[in-house]
């Protein structure tokens, strides 16, 4: 049998991989372009800023935009202190031990739980047991739990990347541990932490399964955190699945994709600038 020359082998491998990369990019870009092409023409000031009529078949999507802003912010407000606190504890207050391994394992497990399970839990615990009902609050709490692992992990990375020498200088100047964290560690870890925040917001905007059972699907303008409200993702799902209005579904999808992409772009920009600074 003839041996295939190494050069030919390499050329073949490179070609296959190049095609795989092109295919991947093409598919992902196709999805975005497809949605924007059909959705952007639908967008208008009335579509964005008026309330829906006839279950969303007509009218705009203003309440869903509002819910899509409130819910992620609520989730961040709850998850940020917990997540950054955990990250500080893991990096600054304890050394690697059985306990930290358990905490990290628990965090990894939480990260792996499917959103539908979060939805079930949120329904049982916040909606039913704590009697919050289908509401922005129930949804926000559920989302907070869901994005907590992301916040913890990115904050931990960010805090770890603050040079040890900064801490030593601070201690040598008579600072306490907490003071060092406040004045030196956290300010320098901030861009990294913000990256986690943006990723968490991005995930919250795109979430559907966990919210249907917790925030509900009311189309009215929410008056308080105890009102039910549907986000753009949920609205899009209902429109598309029940075939209510393809036109409005495309319009909603376009706004949804634009928001997620811009939030992720900010996250990426922060991360990139941060890494450059630390290089």
């Amino acid at each position: 049998m003839m041996r295939i020359p190494a050069k030919v082998n390499q050329a073949a491998a490179a070609t296959v991989m190049a095609l795989a990369t092109l295919l991947t990019l093409a598919v992902l870009i196709f999805i975005v372009v497809f949605i924007l092409e059909k959705g952007l023409p639908i967008l208008s000031r009335t579509f964005l800023f008026s309330v829906p009529r006839d279950m969303g078949k007509a009218g705009g999507i203003f309440p869903t935009i509002l819910a899509t802003i409130i819910l992620p912010l609520l989730a961040i407000a709850l998850a940020l202190p917990l997540g950054v606190g955990t990250a500080i504890y893991l990096t600054e207050y304890t050394r690697e031990s059985r306990l930290t391994r358990i905490i990290r394992f628990g965090n990894d497990c939480l990260a792996g739980i499917p959103s539908i399970i979060f939805g079930l839990f949120g329904f049982l615990f916040f909606v039913t047991l704590l009697e919050m009902g289908w509401s922005l609050l129930s949804g926000g709490l559920t989302l907070a739990l869901m994005i907590l692992p992301t916040i913890i992990r990115t904050s931990e990375e960010a805090i770890k990347s603050v040079p040890t020498s900064y801490r030593e200088v601070s201690f040598s100047l008579g600072a306490t541990r907490w003071r060092t964290i406040q004045r030196v560690v956290l300010p320098n870890a901030l861009p990294g932490i913000l990256t986690g925040v943006m990723l968490g917001i991005g995930r919250s905007i795109g979430e559907t399964a966990a919210l249907i059972f917790t925030a509900g699907s009311s189309l009215r303008l929410p008056q308080s955190l105890f009102d039910s409200s549907r986000t753009m993702s949920v609205h899009f799902y209902i429109l598309a699945r029940e075939g209510l209005s393809t036109e409005n579904a495309y319009g909603t999808a376009a706004v949804l994709i634009l928001s997620v992409l811009s939030v992720n772009a900010v996250a990426y920009y922060l991360m990139h600038r941060y890494m450059k600074k630390n290089a």
Binding site: L25, I31, V32, R203, F236, L256, V260, A265
Partner: peptide
């Protein structure tokens, strides 16, 4: 197999697209 700058443009693009909501994938 590609120069660094190419990777540094394509990788972010792919990571940005990681955020596309699952309902949109389903719709497509």
């Amino acid at each position: 197999f590609v120069p660094r700058p190419v990777m540094h443009t394509i990788k972010p693009m792919i990571e940005l697209l990681a955020g596309i909501p699952s309902v949109i994938y389903g719709f497509i």
